[in-house]
Amino acid sequence: MSAKEKSVPTLPRDAMDPWHALRALTPARIALGRVGAGVPTSRHLELQLAQARAKDAVWRPFDVAGLEHALLADRHEVIRVHSSARDRREYLARPDFGRRLAAADGETLATLAGVYDLVFVVGDGLASLAAERHAPTLIRAVMERLGTPWRVAPIVVAELARVALADEVGAALGAKITVMLIGERPGMSAQDSLGAYVTWAPRLGRTDAERNCVSNVRPEGLGYEAAARTLSWLLQEVRRREQTGVSLRIVADARQLSA
């Protein structure tokens, strides 16, 4: 039983809102009840707990060894790299450091360059748990769906990474497309959302407008199968059109609606 379930006793009748049945319609924190201008103690502490979990998620260390183990078990080759941010505090204050590889890692990657259609980069981002929990399964599901032969590079696991770090990784390895799987900013309701950013012809200086993104990947959000379906479709389109970004986003939005 989770701490959340234990800490929320039944609300006293007078503090409950008569429309609490509406809670079934949304994950939003509606019908919290009311005591004067405030919320009942149990709800108040529940909010604090949610906030505490979100903060802990940001500072949680990245279990790189555990992630590597899971990827190796799926018979992937794995390369481990680090951004130029020295620690998480610096990472948070200096997003520019998180977008560049540590110098030695850039040189190492260059020696491993090949002819690749695609490289997956798995980064901790703002929620390392998301990368550990969802990246291996998502990669497996996407690989199963990519029909025609794809030359896929070894998987790069990147510590203290921002989205744009994949640009330098992809360019160094000589990959045509990068997929950056990265922990999204934790919220009070979800601390393990994974984002997938697809970039054609990665190189330093690519802007976010030149990428396509599939967001909120986690079993309670966009599930693995749905995310893999969208991502594999996106990858086929990217390879066909030889571009990513705004123009493809319109097509993707329209498709998502009709799905």
Partner: peptide, 17 residues
């Protein structure tokens, strides 16, 4: 925002209360 928790944008804002 209900409970100050925006469940789409993942940030903490101010609540009805």
């Amino acid at each position: 925002v209900p409970g100050a928790d925006d469940v789409m944008l993942h940030y903490r804002s101010s609540s009805f209360h």
